[in-house]
Each structure stands twice: as C-alpha cells, then as structure tokens.
Computed example of a mutant assay.
Amino acid sequence: MYFNAIFSTLFVAAASVAATTNFSSASVALAGGFTEKDCYGAPTPPWKTGHHPGWYYGSGTAPKGISCVLDSFFCELLNLFPSGYHCPSPPPPTPPHSPPPPAPYTQVKDFYNLECTAQVDSYLTYGLVDTVDDCYAMCNSVSGCTFFNTYHDVNGKLTCALFSSCLTAACADNCGGQTQPDGSIDYITQSTGYCKAGY
C-alpha cells in the first residue's frame, strides 16, 4: 500500500513536469526513477552477471546503450524533482593569491593500478566518466559516497564505481571474467581507489 502511494505521487509529479515543460514523458519517467533505491540506474553491481553502467557523466560522446546521460538537459530535468538526485556542480574557483584547498579525496596507498576492482556491500552505483575528476564530482553528488574506484574495462570509457565506505586493496577481488551481453569477456585494468578525507 505504501509503495503504491509513493508510486502514485511520483507518477502525478512526473505527469505534471511533462505537461509544463518540453521534456518527453519517457525522459521524465527516467529522471523520476533515477534514485538511490535503484542505485542510480545500476542496481546490479559490476561484479555480478547482467550488470550495466547506470549513467554517463563527462564532456565527451556518451557510449551506446547508456540511458542516463548526465548532460545539461537531463540535469535540468532532474532539478525539477526536489527530493531526487542533482547533478554535480563545478567546484568554486580558488580565490587569487590563496593556497589551494586541501584535497578532498586521496588515492589509497595500496589501491593503485590494480587489475581487480572493489566488490563490497557498501556499493552505491556505477557509471562511466571521461576523467578521474568526473568520478570525484559524481561521488560528491551522491549521498553517502566516501570512496570511488576508477578503472578501465570493456565499456570503453573510464568506469566509476561509488561506495559508502573507504576501502583498501584487500577489497579489490573482482578481477573481471564476466560474460557480457554481446558475448565479450570483461577485464579490469588501471583500477585505483580514492577515499574522502576524514573517513
């Protein structure tokens, strides 16, 4: 009963957004479902069969098959859902003649350039980015994110996996080998972990 009430509320809100904007009903439905509960479009973690990146955030061309492209258009739509996800904001410029702020994330000492990725229950979501800085921005924009793992695999872009706890190389035991929908076999290279300061 509770689920039906929430779904009805979301449906009415989505219909209202679609009616008052130039967004398609499919885009509105996608934005309304882009939530923590659905792991932001990636409910199956990357170490399980049938996984698929939930989103793409970057300045390049989005890879084929990614439904949530976090570009200015889709981010504008997400902003219409006040309690939903909001895209990363660019960091404020450093004032002139000021020392640079301390790094908010640091690379974990033993979690560098591995051929395996993190595989733990504190998984939040994963998607594709162009740079490590893009992944850092995504971690900053996802509630509870304190650690991100970047690596290269069959997806063709930099993969960005987010977690709610800081990890060590001992957690990096997903070494690929999963069969993909197109029949290719997943592999892992250049896996590196970054922990938020203070965690």
Rank of each mutant, 00 (worst) to 15 (best):
L30F: 00
A31L: 06
A14N: 08
P82V: 11
T125H: 10
A19N: 15
F163P: 04
C171D: 15
A42N: 10
A161N: 07
I185Q: 15
P92E: 03
A169N: 07
P181Y: 07
T159P: 01
W47A: 06
C195R: 06
G176P: 00
D186W: 03
F148W: 12
S122L: 01
Y105G: 07
T146H: 12
D173A: 13
F147L: 09
T131M: 03
L124W: 06
C175T: 01
Y105N: 05
W47V: 09
I188D: 11
F74Q: 04
Y123Q: 09
S25P: 06
N174R: 11
P181W: 05
S184A: 09
A161I: 00
W47M: 05
Q119W: 10
S191E: 07
L114C: 08
V142M: 10
F34P: 05
L162R: 07
F34N: 05
T192N: 06
F73W: 13
V69I: 11
I66R: 09
Y57S: 00
G176N: 02
F11C: 01
P181C: 08
T44A: 10
H52L: 10
S27N: 14
Q180T: 12
Y187F: 14
F148L: 09
C87I: 02
G33D: 01
V17Q: 04
P45F: 07
Y194H: 14
N22D: 15
P53K: 06
K37M: 07
K64Y: 05
Y151K: 03
D110P: 04
T117L: 06
T150I: 09
L78W: 06
S141G: 00
F81A: 02
Y112H: 11
P53E: 01
S25H: 10
T150P: 05
P93V: 04
K109C: 06
F74M: 10
V108T: 13
K157R: 14
P181G: 08
V132F: 02
F34H: 06
C175P: 00
G60F: 08
T49P: 07
P63S: 08
Y57A: 02
P93W: 03
T44V: 15
T117G: 07
H97A: 10
G183H: 10
P99C: 01
H86V: 08
L70C: 07
L114F: 11
L114R: 15
L128R: 05
G50N: 07
S59Q: 14
A137I: 00
L77S: 02
S141E: 00
S67V: 11
A14W: 05
P46F: 14
T150L: 01
P99K: 02
G177Y: 09
A15P: 01
C116S: 15
F148P: 06
N174K: 14
Y187T: 11
C68D: 00
T44Y: 08
C160H: 02
W55I: 01
N4Y: 12
A29D: 07
T125S: 14
N22C: 13
K157H: 11
P92N: 00
F7G: 00
V17L: 08
S141A: 14
N140Y: 04
T131G: 01
T131P: 01
S27K: 13
T179V: 10
C195P: 02
G65I: 08
C135D: 03
C160W: 02
A170S: 15
A197W: 06
D134A: 04
F74D: 04
P63K: 05
T9K: 14
T9P: 00
A29M: 12
E115Q: 13
T35E: 03
C87Q: 05
